[in-house]
């Protein structure tokens, strides 16, 4: 960690809050939280979180950068939007949670092996290949993510479901061999790479 970052994480200073404002989707809202806790209480998965949203917001304002960004809390969000609906201060909490998760991953601070993050990566990689998601491959990648043996077990367990989906024309086995994509895949890839470069440059000064 650089000296710069040492300075930035001084307690109860705005540096981390400003970092969040600059880099996290809807991060500008964090300062508006009044710590009522209705989001924390409304989350259906709340009991599985180490830090509920309202606490995360207080931690951000208290400058607890490391603890926030390495937390798996925001990865638990299922986008049910209960918190957004109830927040008395209109914070788009769901978006902020996803924004924080994304930011933590970009910085490489997200907890290793976090399953939600693993799935997101598989989804992203799958999508990047053809410009749209190949559902068959996505499913298989997910089954085999923990190794070949586990993959076979997962596939067998879900075989019936797969057959039914094929029957119902909800899935096409031919997709396994390439599948269709968007018209100009390389153009799309270039666009996204450029966007990533810009984002990387922006967050570079925040380091890890």
């Amino acid at each position: 960690m650089s000296d710069l970052n040492q300075n930035m994480i001084e307690k109860y200073r705005n540096s981390f809050l400003k970092e969040v404002e600059a880099n996290v989707e809807e991060g500008e809202w964090v300062k508006m939280c009044m710590q009522c806790g209705v989001c924390s209480g409304s989350c259906p998965l709340g009991k599985h979180w180490a830090h509920p949203p309202q606490e995360i917001f207080m931690m951000i304002r208290a400058g607890q950068r490391e603890a926030v960004l390495s937390s798996d809390a925001m990865w638990m969000c299922t986008s049910c939007y209960n918190c957004i609906v109830r927040c008395p201060r209109e914070l788009p909490i769901t978006h902020i949670m996803h924004g924080l998760a994304h930011y933590a991953r970009r910085l490489g601070l997200a907890p290793k092996g976090q399953p939600t993050m693993a799935f997101a990566q598989i989804f992203w990689d799958n999508m990047m290949k053809a410009g749209r998601v190949n559902e068959l491959k996505l499913g298989l990648s997910l089954y085999y993510k923990d190794g070949f043996v586990q993959g076979i077990k997962n596939s067998l367990a879900n075989m019936k479901l797969g057959q039914n989906m094929i029957k119902a024309k909800r899935m096409n086995a031919v997709e396994f061999f390439g599948g269709h994509g968007v018209k100009d895949v390389s153009g799309l890839q270039k666009m996204i790479r450029k966007a990533q470069e810009l984002e990387d440059a922006r967050i570079a000064k925040y380091g890890k």
Binding site: G37, G41, S42
Partner: peptide, 18 residues
């Protein structure tokens, strides 16, 4: 700030929150 209220079988209100 209480997140929600439910009701049990005896019509007791149950408060949920943090």
């Amino acid at each position: 700030k209480v997140a929600s209220v439910t009701q049990d079988k005896e019509a007791n209100p149950v408060l949920h929150g943090v």
